[in-house]
Every structure is written in C-alpha cells, then in structure tokens.
Design a protein around this nucleic acid. Sequence first.
DNA 1: GTCTATATCAAGATAGAC
DNA 2: GTCTATCTTGATATAGAC
Lengths: 224, 224
Amino acid sequence: MARLSFREQVLRAREDAIVESVNRLLAEKGFDLMTVDEVAADVGIAKASLYKHFTSKEELAAAAMVRLLDRAQAAIGEIAGDASLKRPVDRLQAVARWTMRVQLAGEMPALPAQNSTLRAALLANRAYMDRLLGVSEQLGGWITAAQAAGEIRPSLPPEVVLYTLFARACDPVLGMLKATGQHSDDRIVELLVGTCFEGVGAGAAAEPAARSSAAGARRAAEPA
Amino acid sequence: MARLSFREQVLRAREDAIVESVNRLLAEKGFDLMTVDEVAADVGIAKASLYKHFTSKEELAAAAMVRLLDRAQAAIGEIAGDASLKRPVDRLQAVARWTMRVQLAGEMPALPAQNSTLRAALLANRAYMDRLLGVSEQLGGWITAAQAAGEIRPSLPPEVVLYTLFARACDPVLGMLKATGQHSDDRIVELLVGTCFEGVGAGAAAEPAARSSAAGARRAAEPA
DNA sequence: GTCTATATCAAGATAGAC
DNA sequence: GTCTATCTTGATATAGAC
C-alpha cells in the first residue's frame, strides 16, 4: 500500500504540474489560442500522455478553473478570519484586491464567454459547478449583509454586484494599465478597486443639485 | 462615367453588406470562433469572392471596427450638439449609454485582446487607428474637462477613466444580466452606468469614519 | 502511462475557369 | 468579380508499441 500511495502521489504531482501549466497558458493566451501541443511541451510530456489524464481540452480548462476556485475559496476563508476586516464591504474589497493581484500576476485563466462547447463542458462539470456555487453563495451573503449595513447601495440587485465583482477580476483594463508601465501593480489595484466601489464620478455625478461641495469633501480622502 | 459610378455603388453596397455581416457575427461569436465560411454564407457569396474584397480575416474585423468607430463618432457628434447635455460628465454618460445599447442590440464586435496577429493587423490599419485616435482624443477632452469641473475624480489618471469607459462598453456583465431575463434593457443600462460612475458602494465605503449619515443621504437620489 | 506516429477535420487562403 | 474545387496548415484526438 505504501508503493501504491507513492504512485498516486507521483500521479497527482504530475497532474498538478499539468494544471498549473494550463492555468498559466490560459492566462497568457486564452482558451481558443492555447493549444494542447503547447501544454504538453510546457509540461514536458507527450500529448498522448496528456489525454490519459484529461479527456479533452475543455476538461483541462475546467481543471484550471477548479484550481483557481479552490485558491479563491482559501483566500475567502482567510479574509473571513481576518479580524481587521469587520465590515462586509471591507471583505468584498479584499476579495476584489485578491482577484486583481491574481490577474496582475498572470495567473487568471481567461475563458471566452462565447464558446458554447466550453460553457457546456463547464456546466456539466460537477467539481467546477460545486466550487462556483460555493464561492458565489459566500460572496452573496457578504453582499446582502453589506447592503443591509448601508455599505453597498441597496438599490442594486445583489446579482449585479456579484457579476460586477467577478467581471472586474477579469477586466482588461488591468492589463492595459500594466502595459503602459506608468503605474505600479499596487497602484493599479487601488485605482481599479476605487472605480469598482466608488465609480469614476466625483460623488455627485448623478445629482447635479448639490455637487461641488460634496465633491470637494470627498476628494481629500482619496489615495494619492 | 455613369455606368462606372453605378458599378462602384454596387461594389460599395456589397462591401457594406459584408461588413455588416461581419459585425454581427463578431458580436455573436467573437473573432476566434467566427469563420470566413460563415461570413460568406451569411452574405450569400462564395468565400473566394470575399477574398477579392478583403485580403484576410483580420481585415474583415478591422473593417467592422472602422464601421463601429464611424458610428461612434456620429453618436459623439450628436451628443456634442445636444443642448440638454451641458456638463462634460453628462456627455460621457451619454457615450456610455450609447455603447451599452449597441452591445445589448448585439452589434458590438468582440475582439479578443490576446490575439497578437489581430492586434498587429489593427495597429497597421491606418483607417482604424485614425478613427480610434479621433474618438479617444474627443473623449479625453471631455474627461479632463469633467475633472476640471469636479465631476470626475481628479485623482484618477485620465487614461484610467478612458479605458474604464471603453471596457464597460464590452463588459460581459451586460450579457449576463440580459441572460437572466429579469431586467429590461433600459434598466440594465441604467444599473451599469450607475456602477461605472458611482460604483457599487454606498458612497462612504472608503471612509469608515463618516459612513452611515452620508450613505442615507445619497440613497434617496438613486433610481428605483 | 509514456512514447512516436498518424488519423481526422476544420478553417484560412488560393487556382483557374467563366 | 464571381464561382467551384482545391491546397495547406494547424490543431484535436487516437492507435498501437513498449
């Protein structure tokens, strides 16, 4: 049984290496442009061996997403246990920062929403769906709590907030800003967390009546 | 010369039909999943005939983008001439609404930012680059004006605002919300314009000190 | 389970007649 | 400029030996 367990460990390690390569290649090139040949070459094994572990390219992507969602769940757990983050909105911001840093680190797999065969494969993947629902429910709870506390606008349907948070994690704006080379990663994260939670407006954009005074008051509290 | 001009008109009409088909197919499936065969079938001509008009798939996409940017420039011109939109931020919001409606109408071509051959083709396309720069400069002027007037946060680099506006036009959140079928198109647009300019926060998310009173005051002005 | 070699096919692009 | 028919390539997936 010791040798069997050892074999399984080796197998797991290899599969982990595969999924990590897939994750990075998905982040770099996206699903459509990533080829299975590349993955095999990157891992250092033959393509046919890959197909012994994963039966299709879609399953490779699903495995990468499962890995990401597991990391996300771990990050969420740490945030939940962080005593310095008391308000639900602070926790949501921490989640946003985490996802943005993942993307800036080149570790955010990019799956096109329009590929229907990929969508079907993901919807049929139990491991993926379970984790996705778990993360969504956890965040959904924080969102409604934040709305009840007046920290997130209660007029927004919770799913709008949830989708918005998910989308900001994959926002191409992150990559565009990084490409200019004018800002540090930390600055990019703070800028975009700010636009996500406070918007680009000065605080009175939708209320022409009382704008200038409120804008002046709010500006002082912004990061430099 | 009359017959020659007529012939040219016919040619132009056919190319317009091609570009319109490309635009719609790009919106539906994105660049990678759109095939030239589909385009030809959709227009009702042979694939070889397509290649007499456009020398590559990338040029087809570029032509669709030129068409979109021309429409955008026209919309911007109308907004600039609208007397009811006096503040720069109102004009920027109008632009955001226009782009979101284009996407909800299924007319927003989706070009993956990761495809480098496509990027190279676009960068080398004079007609595309000219229009892109024209639109960017026009919007950039409104952004700095809005910042000078205290309508857009001056602490944000203008390019962050510009990229954010561009990105919100292509935001997958629009499609996700439409897919739920729970909101009208107009409501989706207003919700997302709101998150873009005001954020999801209640107005005091970044300032824990004085949060509850400000949040209550702002909530009354929000759309139902 | 790993490899080499190959089947299979979809898709971009072209040849050549009309 | 339009067509049919074809070329060529690249990518998913598999066969079969070890």
